[in-house]
Design a binder for these strands. Sequence first.
DNA 1: CCTGCAGCAATGTGATCACATTGAAAAAAG
DNA 2: CTTTTTTCAATGTGATCACATTGCTGCAGG
Lengths: 241, 241
Amino acid sequence: MSKDAALDLPSLERGARETVGQWVYRSLRAAVMIGRIPPGQPLTIRGIAEALGVSTMPVREALRRLSAEQALEIRDSRRVLVPHMTPARFRELCELRIALETHAAERALPYITPARIEELAAIDRGIDEAHAAGDQERATILNQEFHRAIYTANPHQISLSLVESVWLQLGPFVRLALSRLREHYKIDRHSEALAAMRRQDAFALRIAIEADIRDGIAHVGTSELLTAYVGSGGKRMATVG
Amino acid sequence: MSKDAALDLPSLERGARETVGQWVYRSLRAAVMIGRIPPGQPLTIRGIAEALGVSTMPVREALRRLSAEQALEIRDSRRVLVPHMTPARFRELCELRIALETHAAERALPYITPARIEELAAIDRGIDEAHAAGDQERATILNQEFHRAIYTANPHQISLSLVESVWLQLGPFVRLALSRLREHYKIDRHSEALAAMRRQDAFALRIAIEADIRDGIAHVGTSELLTAYVGSGGKRMATVG
DNA sequence: CCTGCAGCAATGTGATCACATTGAAAAAAG
DNA sequence: CTTTTTTCAATGTGATCACATTGCTGCAGG
């Protein structure tokens, strides 16, 4: 039944060596990450299964996994949905991102090689191109890739999965952040980060990462961004801030 | 088939309003948390299902969830097992714990009330009792409860799930840490933390939390603790001491 | 005695079915 | 017309089955 409608999931290519469950997971994850699924809209197993043309089994496991990653919320009625955002939660997520990612960056720094820096610079150029082309979605993906490329330099990396969990929780709202692209007068924090890495300067790297995160999301603030969202689909939150 | 043997899962009580899946999850989680399942031992769906007297369905979802929480590792062969530990990974986990928990504590501090401090003090007394009684397992549980009670004071708490993920990853080795109980000459960091909270002193609280974590786990170091475990199970672990 | 290779048991994956619970629409009572 | 009750479709949960893949075991060939 397509009565739910509006559930347009990105049709990713199904890897040859990939199970159906993994494919469903990737599809759903990508949808959440770019804000394709509006918060509050209930996700039904059968609905998703039909939309993707698979049985319910792989969907159940994908939903379960996304829930474990805090990307989705399981209400006590066992209904699954994209969590609502509140100003306070948004603030907590930003601060948590900063705490986690500055830590991850610092731990990765000793393993950053000139080759890695060159890769990072290449990604950064790609981001500029995406911005120039007005492709905000691609810029977001590449920005994540930039950060990921830093943290994974650490061969003993373990915090990436936690970082990605936070990204997922912020995901439904990047769309909002992007719509107000004030990217014009944004200082290029990535350049600062690259410079810090070249000098092996841990402190400067932390500063750069924190500034980059704040520029990217925190500047939208809790003011307009959230009232738009929270106000619309509020269940128990009449008027926030 | 009980040929796998040794798979003694704690028999938790099944909540009335609890689904089988949740119960299986709790059981498995508790087993991992207290190091009941040796790393490297493959966990089979049917084996666990039989051990718990349920069908395979709830077990599949529980394993999937634990894997998403990094408590279990899914090999490319789709075999699920408790991850191996290495000195480097252990170090990363400890440092990540510190970064996460000092952050969580600081964010919770403004919400710490005298009532909450009294609760914390009560838990701390319980820990002392458990230590006195030689019940290390209970002391561990209560210690986690102590930390959890701090972080959840923040009504907008979101980092607890990440913290618990790290606890889970360290879980299989608390048994080791406990066996070398050098608790005798351990300074009571919890008291320091309590004092810091009474004064609303964020910096002192961070210091106390970090010291508590280091005392609790890091002091065992990467020396003896891990060689015992890692050494034995290089790849597929011939014989586990 | 060691090395491939074939066959088989074990395991994970996905589909389908039955059942209990939930949520909401419809009907009855005030 | 409002409120309560009843009923029923929709949904999540758990069990069972069929199938493909994995990995081991034993056998044959070197």
